[in-house]
Design a protein around this nucleic acid. Sequence first.
DNA 1: CGTGTTGTTCAGTT
DNA 2: TAACTGAACAACAC
Length: 259
Amino acid sequence: MPELSDVEGFRRHFARYAKGHRIKGVDVPDPTLLRNARPRALRSAIVGKRFGEPDRHGKWLIAPAGRARVLLHFGMTGLLVWSGDARERHRYDRIVFELTGGQLRYRNMRRLGGVWLARSEKECQEVVGSLGPDALGLDADALAECIRGRRGGIKSALLDQRVIAGLGNLLSDEILWRARINPRKPASRIRSPALTRLHSEMEAVLQEANRHGRVPGKPGWLTGVRGEGDARCPRCRARLRRGTVAGRTSVWCPRCQRG
DNA sequence: CGTGTTGTTCAGTT
DNA sequence: TAACTGAACAACAC
């Protein structure tokens, strides 16, 4: 599930429920998901501190606690759940932050992703420093700069977190479909008119998805039909195509996305 | 019992 | 070197 808009939803959830609360303890039912520290080290770094205003970069959620930061990545199946009381733990609750007023639970079925501890800005950069600029708010010139000199297709550039941070498989397909750009089109051959469309549709898709706090599957969107067997283009009704692009299952319209 | 899956990383290749 | 591809990771649903 988690792409930029999903993580933005988690960020708002965090800001609403966990921010400002004191950390009383951390329960770590699955220590392997705590990727760069032992539970004891995490506790000694953050217990007694209050969570501050959370930040997001790409698909990473960054939660300050005192001078340390907790970095969360959600893989394919992660999510953040607030529980006002200490009710029974869910099977996939991997790391549970016990706060004044409730529990914040990092839940993740497939155990891709995880939680990292950064005790300083430097340690934070060691984890998220290789990311490109966040896709949200990227201006047209910056986008052009990001994809300049790429040798492969545009979709592979959009998915590469070192190029642009935050877009996943669904958002990338959605943006390319709306901009009428074929996912296999070489990134280096995208110029003025298509580049302008790419930028404005990226902005529009991200704004709308962020309002929902997730990637919406709604009418008029590719996401609304991409799960169907013989889906048709919501715009022109042509039969959608499905294939592997940049190593991922991609859906596009052979009529709308010729160029 | 295969196949597919919203993400990242690593080894190997171009 | 830069950047691409495919396998691996993991745990399910269908």
